[in-house]
């Protein structure tokens, strides 16, 4: 018997300990609300180490994640930047559409006032020489354009079509030196001819005794058959009267801002 016990001592001990632990477990299941002395002691001893290790590990992980292992951050950053760019582009597009909408609304209001058929066109190019003032628009003969048609913007007269191709046309601006437009001073109805002078207009053949003042609005007189009567051309900025001259020297600023021209209207046909 003693030999048997000594022979299977370890196995028997292991079974006893296992049984004891199961009994302890079973007992503790019933007594789960209480903390044993052992548990308290272990918790008390381990807690500072746990805290220390946890703090160190957190710090190391934070350093690793924040300063060393930045692949994920970089990926996220790239993703956010891309997203940001896309959102900005969409925002800018919306702004642009909104501004275009405003400009087109003004043009449409202008067409309603004009009471004539008009075709909107985009400005796609400018003159290649610095001394001529022409623009290229994206509508041509296929859209019904022909030479001599008047071109306007919401602010006033732009010019007239001088060259046409199937899908584009060239427009001579009223500020070109070769442009001449029959003009009326709106307030006094005095007549003259507005000639282009680069950025300004000079009004010729206005009689000496005509009452012209700075700020007077110049409109088309309708003579010549190209521009309808009453379209704004510009405002008088300087008047010079010399008693030895037959006519006054008048300088005017065009109503339309040619440096910011994007959309124009080509006036087609006669009055509705």
């Amino acid at each position: 018997m003693r030999d048997l016990l000594s022979r299977y001592r370890f196995s028997l001990l292991a079974m006893v300990v296992l049984l004891a632990s199961l009994i302890l477990y079973s007992y503790n299941i019933r007594q789960k609300s209480t903390t044993t002395f052992f548990e308290r002691a272990v918790l008390s001893v381990v807690a500072p180490f746990q805290l220390g290790i946890d703090s160190t590990a957190t710090a190391v992980m934070a350093a690793w994640n924040d300063y060393l292992w930045l692949i994920e951050t970089r990926r996220r950053n790239v993703q956010l930047e891309t997203e940001n760019r896309e959102l900005r582009a969409r925002l800018e597009l919306l702004d642009e559409i909104s501004l275009q909408n405003q400009r087109l609304r003004k043009l449409l209001a202008f067409v309603d006032d004009l009471d004539r058929a008009a075709l909107p066109a985009l400005v796609i190019g400018e003159d290649v020489t610095p001394w001529s003032r022409t623009i290229v628009i994206n509508k041509g003969t296929r859209s019904g354009l022909r030479q001599g048609l008047a071109v306007v913007a919401s602010e006033g007269v732009v010019g007239r079509v001088i060259k046409t191709s199937a899908h584009s046309s060239r427009v001579l601006l009223i500020t070109d030196p070769s442009s001449a437009v029959a003009t009326l001073v709106q307030r006094t109805r005095s007549r003259g001819v507005s000639r282009g002078r680069g950025d300004r207009l000079t009004v010729e053949y206005v009689e000496q005794d005509a009452d012209i003042q700075k700020g007077d609005l110049l409109v088309t007189s309708g003579m010549g058959g190209i521009f309808p009567k009453g379209l704004p051309l510009g405002r008088v900025v300087a008047v010079q009267q010399d008693h030895f001259d037959l006519f006054q020297r008048i300088e005017a600023a065009p109503s339309a801002d040619f440096s910011r021209l994007e959309e124009v209207l080509v006036i087609l046909g006669d009055d509705r």
Binding site: P177, S178, R195, G198, T202
Partner: peptide
Amino acid sequence: MTTFAEMGTILYLLVTA
């Protein structure tokens, strides 16, 4: 331009440009 097209105003543009 001044000789063939009688555009005197071109001179102003040219001188300034």
